[in-house]
Protein backbone atom coordinates (compact mmCIF):
# COMPACT_ATOMS: atom_id res chain seq x y z
CA UNK A 1 0.00 0.00 0.00
CA UNK A 2 1.32 3.43 -0.87
CA UNK A 3 0.54 6.87 0.50
CA UNK A 4 0.62 10.41 -0.80
CA UNK A 5 3.46 12.16 1.01
CA UNK A 6 2.34 15.66 0.06
CA UNK A 7 -1.00 16.68 -1.43
CA UNK A 8 -1.56 20.22 -2.73
CA UNK A 9 -5.17 21.28 -3.29
CA UNK A 10 -5.78 24.23 -5.62
CA UNK A 11 -9.46 25.16 -5.69
CA UNK A 12 -11.15 28.52 -5.19
CA UNK A 13 -14.26 27.05 -3.57
CA UNK A 14 -13.80 26.89 0.25
CA UNK A 15 -16.68 24.42 0.67
CA UNK A 16 -15.21 22.02 -1.90
CA UNK A 17 -11.88 22.35 -0.06
CA UNK A 18 -13.56 21.53 3.24
CA UNK A 19 -15.19 18.43 1.75
CA UNK A 20 -11.91 17.26 0.19
CA UNK A 21 -10.12 17.73 3.51
CA UNK A 22 -12.73 15.68 5.38
CA UNK A 23 -12.58 12.94 2.77
CA UNK A 24 -8.75 12.92 2.65
CA UNK A 25 -8.49 12.75 6.43
CA UNK A 26 -10.91 9.80 6.51
CA UNK A 27 -8.92 7.83 3.95
CA UNK A 28 -5.75 8.29 6.01
CA UNK A 29 -3.78 8.10 2.75
CA UNK A 30 -2.21 11.56 2.87
CA UNK A 31 0.63 12.60 5.14
CA UNK A 32 0.76 16.30 4.50
CA UNK A 33 -2.00 18.49 3.04
CA UNK A 34 -1.51 21.99 1.61
CA UNK A 35 -4.62 23.93 0.65
CA UNK A 36 -4.64 26.95 -1.67
CA UNK A 37 -7.69 28.90 -2.75
CA UNK A 38 -5.56 31.04 -5.04
CA UNK A 39 -3.33 29.56 -7.76
CA UNK A 40 -0.91 32.46 -7.27
CA UNK A 41 -0.30 31.45 -3.66
CA UNK A 42 0.18 27.84 -4.75
CA UNK A 43 2.84 28.98 -7.26
CA UNK A 44 4.61 30.89 -4.50
CA UNK A 45 4.60 27.65 -2.46
CA UNK A 46 6.23 25.73 -5.35
CA UNK A 47 8.83 28.47 -5.76
CA UNK A 48 9.76 27.97 -2.10
CA UNK A 49 9.59 24.15 -2.41
CA UNK A 50 10.93 23.40 -5.91
CA UNK A 51 11.34 19.65 -5.30
CA UNK A 52 7.80 18.42 -5.94
CA UNK A 53 8.77 14.86 -6.84
CA UNK A 54 6.65 13.35 -4.04
CA UNK A 55 3.77 15.81 -4.40
CA UNK A 56 0.35 15.24 -5.94
CA UNK A 57 -1.68 18.32 -6.97
CA UNK A 58 -5.48 18.33 -7.21
CA UNK A 59 -6.18 21.22 -9.58
CA UNK A 60 -9.44 22.98 -10.37
CA UNK A 61 -9.82 24.65 -13.80
CA UNK A 62 -12.35 27.46 -13.47
CA UNK A 63 -10.87 29.88 -10.97
CA UNK A 64 -10.85 33.68 -10.92
CA UNK A 65 -7.71 35.62 -12.03
CA UNK A 66 -5.45 32.63 -12.74
CA UNK A 67 -7.21 29.56 -14.11
CA UNK A 68 -6.00 25.98 -13.94
CA UNK A 69 -4.23 26.12 -17.31
CA UNK A 70 -2.35 29.32 -16.51
CA UNK A 71 -1.35 27.68 -13.24
CA UNK A 72 0.03 24.67 -15.16
CA UNK A 73 2.10 26.94 -17.41
CA UNK A 74 3.51 28.82 -14.42
CA UNK A 75 4.21 25.52 -12.66
CA UNK A 76 6.07 24.19 -15.70
CA UNK A 77 8.23 27.34 -15.65
CA UNK A 78 9.05 26.92 -11.95
CA UNK A 79 9.41 23.19 -11.47
CA UNK A 80 11.39 21.07 -13.93
CA UNK A 81 12.91 17.69 -14.60
CA UNK A 82 12.40 14.86 -12.18
CA UNK A 83 11.07 17.25 -9.55
CA UNK A 84 7.65 17.83 -11.14
CA UNK A 85 4.54 16.83 -9.20
CA UNK A 86 1.77 14.53 -10.41
CA UNK A 87 -1.17 16.75 -11.35
CA UNK A 88 -4.76 15.51 -11.20
CA UNK A 89 -7.29 17.83 -12.82
CA UNK A 90 -10.38 17.96 -10.63
CA UNK A 91 -13.14 19.99 -12.19
CA UNK A 92 -16.86 20.32 -12.74
CA UNK A 93 -16.16 21.20 -16.39
CA UNK A 94 -17.68 18.80 -18.90
CA UNK A 95 -16.02 20.64 -21.77
CA UNK A 96 -14.10 18.09 -23.89
CA UNK A 97 -11.76 20.94 -24.96
CA UNK A 98 -10.65 21.33 -21.34
CA UNK A 99 -9.75 17.65 -21.20
CA UNK A 100 -7.83 17.86 -24.49
CA UNK A 101 -6.00 20.97 -23.31
CA UNK A 102 -5.01 19.32 -20.04
CA UNK A 103 -3.59 16.35 -21.97
CA UNK A 104 -0.98 18.72 -23.48
CA UNK A 105 0.75 19.03 -20.09
CA UNK A 106 2.92 15.94 -19.41
CA UNK A 107 2.64 16.42 -15.64
CA UNK A 108 -1.18 16.01 -15.84
CA UNK A 109 -1.80 12.31 -15.22
CA UNK A 110 -5.56 12.25 -14.66
CA UNK A 111 -8.67 14.26 -15.45
CA UNK A 112 -11.40 13.78 -12.83
CA UNK A 113 -14.91 15.22 -12.74
CA UNK A 114 -16.24 16.48 -9.44
CA UNK A 115 -17.55 15.13 -7.10
CA UNK A 116 -14.34 13.63 -5.71
CA UNK A 117 -14.84 10.18 -4.14
CA UNK A 118 -12.83 8.48 -1.42
CA UNK A 119 -12.10 5.70 -3.92
CA UNK A 120 -10.42 8.27 -6.23
CA UNK A 121 -8.03 9.29 -3.43
CA UNK A 122 -7.16 5.68 -2.65
CA UNK A 123 -6.60 4.83 -6.29
CA UNK A 124 -4.36 7.86 -6.82
CA UNK A 125 -2.41 7.07 -3.64
CA UNK A 126 -1.80 3.56 -4.97
CA UNK A 127 -0.86 4.72 -8.46
CA UNK A 128 1.37 7.73 -7.68
CA UNK A 129 2.17 7.46 -3.96
CA UNK A 130 5.25 6.23 -2.20
CA UNK A 131 5.65 3.06 -0.09
CA UNK A 132 4.66 3.59 3.53
CA UNK A 133 7.95 2.14 4.60
CA UNK A 134 9.92 4.81 2.73
CA UNK A 135 8.66 7.54 5.01
Amino acid sequence: MTRIANLVLVDDNPIDQLLYRRMIERTGKVDNLQEFMSPDHAIAYFQDNPDASSTVVFLDINMPRTDGFEFLEMLADNVTGAKVPVVVMLTSSLNPQDKARAANFPMVKEFLHKPLRAADIERIANAYGVQSGDL
Partner: peptide, 16 residues
Protein backbone atom coordinates in the same frame (compact mmCIF):
# COMPACT_ATOMS: atom_id res chain seq x y z
CA UNK B 1 -21.75 25.48 -16.74
CA UNK B 2 -22.04 27.80 -13.75
CA UNK B 3 -24.95 25.77 -12.34
CA UNK B 4 -22.95 22.57 -12.46
CA UNK B 5 -20.26 23.57 -9.95
CA UNK B 6 -22.63 24.43 -7.03
CA UNK B 7 -24.75 21.37 -7.83
CA UNK B 8 -21.74 19.13 -7.46
CA UNK B 9 -20.74 20.85 -4.20
CA UNK B 10 -24.25 20.31 -2.86
CA UNK B 11 -24.07 16.67 -3.88
CA UNK B 12 -20.83 16.24 -1.94
CA UNK B 13 -22.26 18.02 1.13
CA UNK B 14 -25.34 15.81 1.18
CA UNK B 15 -23.13 12.80 0.53
CA UNK B 16 -21.21 13.55 3.77
Amino acid sequence: HEMRAPTVTLQMLLGE
